[in-house]
Each structure stands twice: as structure tokens, then as C-alpha cells.
Simulated scan of single mutants.
Amino acid sequence: MSDTARIRIWDWWVRVTHWVIAGIVIWNLFGPTDPLHRKLGYAAAALVGVRIVWGMIGTRYARFSAWWPTRSRLLAYLRSLASGKPSRHLSHNPLGALMALMLWVLVIALALTGWLMRLDAFWGEDWPQEIHTLLAVALEVCVCVHIAATIVMSVWTRENLIAAMLTGYKRTDKSTDKCTDTRSDARHDEGR
């Protein structure tokens, strides 16, 4: 029997929210600013909210406990990068986790500033629009960094991270991966 196997990491809800939010973000960053833009922005923020709840109650690798970027996790990961041998993480690596959190904060902040721009209390005020624009630029930069980092890490580690987010599966090498934990967990195996 081979030591190399596949394990389901990303359940269907994580994958659906990831790709739907990504599609909305791309549409809203480059599409027209019309009523659909506003509705999609609110939908993206709602999906982020649901994903945050899923991070507390969801399947094993979707939970924050599996990937929260603590100081010690970040430092250990940065050391592994500096050594040229990035440590493997079945869930998000600590830098990927930071990026996910940053993207979620930006999506929610964009929805909030978009909502503020429509309030009578701020009629004629420029600052909600200015903040909304700055947040949109920050989101564009983070999306570009996220995509570039995913490609670079996929090549560097020889693990197709894009495919993993499409299929839900990552490879696991039981003989070498210290991060691998394949204990039976029906909730994560079933993809809930």
C-alpha cells in the first residue's frame, strides 16, 4: 500500500462560498456600478458572514481551530519559508489564513461603506465613496497577491492548491507529513 493518499480537506460549503465570493468580487471590481453591483456586494458580505459561522461550527478543516494564524504558527511558517522548505498544512497555511481573513474584512467593509453611501444621513458627503474606493483598490491588490501566492506555492510545493479548492482533496503523505492527521472524523469525511 502506498503512503501517498488523498484526503478531503475542503467541504462543499467552503468551496462553494470561496468560488461564489470570488466571482462576485471579480464582477463587482470590474463590472458596472449598478443596482446589481450593490445586491451582489451584500450577497458577498452575507456569504462571508455564513463562512465565519462555518469557521466555528463547520467541518474539521473549515474550522478556525485548524488554521487560525497564531503568532507561533506564523513564525514557524516564516522560518520554514526562509529555509526553502515550506511546512505543509492540510488546511490554510498561516499566511494563506491571514489573506483569507483580510479578504473577508475587505468584503464586509465594502458592503458597509456601500450601504453608508445610500443613507440620507451621508447625502452629499464624499468620504463614504472615497473609503469605498480605497477599500476596492485594497481588495484588488489582495486578490492579485492571493492568486499569485497560490500559483507560486502550488509550483514550489508541487501541490495544486487551485485543484484542491475545486475538488476538496489534497494529497497526504503519511510517511513524511507531520501535519497529517487522518483520524476518522465523519463530519469532515462526509463533507457535511
Rank of each mutant, 00 (worst) to 15 (best):
A136K: 05
D11Y: 00
L90H: 03
V53A: 12
A43R: 04
M102K: 06
W27L: 15
G55A: 09
L112N: 01
A111F: 02
H146N: 10
E125P: 03
R79V: 06
V48R: 04
R88Q: 08
A136E: 10
E130G: 01
A46K: 01
F30P: 08
P128M: 14
L29R: 11
L95D: 00
V25N: 05
Y77H: 15
E140G: 09
N93L: 15
V14L: 11
S83Y: 02
A136D: 12
L139P: 01
P86S: 13
M99R: 11
A100C: 09
L112F: 11
L74I: 12
G55P: 03
W123H: 06
T4Q: 14
A22N: 08
L74G: 02
R63P: 00
G41R: 12
E130I: 10
V50T: 06
L135M: 14
L90N: 07
V137A: 08
W104Y: 10
A109Y: 07
E125G: 06
L75A: 14
A66V: 11
M56Q: 08
R60L: 13
R118N: 09
G124V: 13
I147A: 14
L98C: 15
I131C: 14
S65L: 08
V53G: 09
G41W: 04
R60E: 05
W104A: 15
T33C: 06
N28W: 03
R60S: 14
S65K: 14
A66C: 12
W115T: 03
